[in-house]
C-alpha cells in the first residue's frame, strides 16, 4: 500500500472516529471540539488529495474547509454555547450505550452497502466511500438521538463533512469546491436561522409580562 493510500485511509479513519466519538459525548463543548478536529482532518485530507491528484480545486476546498469549518463555525458554536449557558450536559433521547451500538450497526450497514456496489472500483475509493457513508449516517443518528438543537446542528455539520469526504476521494470530481461552498452557504443560513429561533424562544420564555401576570393572579 503506497503512502498516498495509507495517509488517506488514516485521515478518513480519524474523521470516522471523531464522528463516532461525538455520539459518546454528553457536553456540547466536547462535541464542538470533536467537530473541529474532524474538520481539521478533513481539510488536511483535501490538501493531501489535491496533492495526490494534482487538482487545484481540492486545495481550494481544503482552504475553505479549514477557514470556515475548522475555525469560524466552531468559534460560532462555542459562542452560542457560552451565550445560552449550555455548558452542562445536554439531554439525550436514547441511552448512550444504545446510541453507540446503533452507530456501530450503521457503520456495519454502510460497509455492507458499499462493498458489493464497488466491487470493481479501486481500493482507495472503496474504503473512503465506506467511511464517508458511515460518517453521513452517524451524523444523521446524532441528530436523532439528541434533543438539543445545537447538537442537531453539529450532527448535520458532521454529516456534511462525510459528503465532502466522499467527494474529495473521487478522482475527477471537478465541482467539489463549488459544491462545498454552496453547502456551506446553506449551512450558514441554517445556523443563523436556528440561532435566531433560539433567541426568540428565550425571549418568549423570559418575558417579564408573564411574570407580572402570575403575580397579579397571586393577589
Amino acid at each position: 500500500m503506497s503512502l498516498t493510500f495509507s495517509l488517506a485511509h488514516l485521515m478518513g479513519g480519524i474523521i470516522l472516529l471523531c464522528a463516532f466519538l461525538q455520539l459518546s459525548q454528553r457536553r456540547l463543548a466536547a462535541m464542538v471540539t470533536l467537530y473541529q478536529l474532524e474538520a481539521l482532518v478533513l481539510a488536511a485530507a483535501a490538501f493531501w488529495q489535491g496533492y495526490a491528484q494534482h487538482e487545484i480545486n481540492l486545495y481550494l476546498t481544503g482552504l475553505i474547509t479549514f477557514a470556515l469549518k475548522a475555525m469560524l463555525l466552531p468559534w460560532g458554536l462555542r459562542e452560542i454555547v457560552q451565550r445560552f449557558n449550555m455548558v452542562r450536559a445536554v439531554e439525550t433521547a436514547l441511552p448512550m450505550a444504545a446510541a453507540m451500538i446503533l452507530g456501530l450497526a450503521l457503520i456495519g450497514i454502510a460497509v455492507l452497502v458499499v462493498l458489493p456496489v464497488t466491487m470493481h472500483a479501486i481500493s482507495l475509493t472503496r474504503e473512503d466511500l465506506a467511511i464517508a457513508l458511515s460518517v453521513v449516517l452517524l451524523g444523521l443518528l446524532l441528530m436523532i438521538v439528541r434533543r438539543n438543537a445545537l447538537a442537531q446542528i453539529i450532527g448535520f455539520l458532521s454529516m456534511e463533512n462525510g459528503l465532502v469526504l466522499a467527494a474529495i476521494g473521487m478522482p475527477g470530481m471537478p465541482f467539489v469546491a463549488e459544491f462545498s461552498v454552496a453547502l456551506l452557504v446553506l449551512l450558514a443560513f441554517l445556523v443563523v436561522g436556528v440561532f435566531l429561533l433560539r433567541i426568540r424562544e428565550h425571549f418568549d420564555t423570559l418575558d417579564i409580562s408573564g411574570l407580572e401576570d402570575i403575580e397579579r393572579r397571586g393577589r
Binding site: M1, F5, H9, G13, L16, F20, L104, I107, G108, V111, V114, L115, S123, R126, E127, A130
Partner: peptide
C-alpha cells in the same frame, strides 16, 4: 470497528 474495517481492507489485497 477495527475488525469490521479490516474486512474492507482485506479484500483490497494490499
Amino acid at each position: 470497528l477495527a475488525g469490521v474495517f479490516l474486512f474492507v481492507a482485506a479484500r483490497i489485497g494490499a
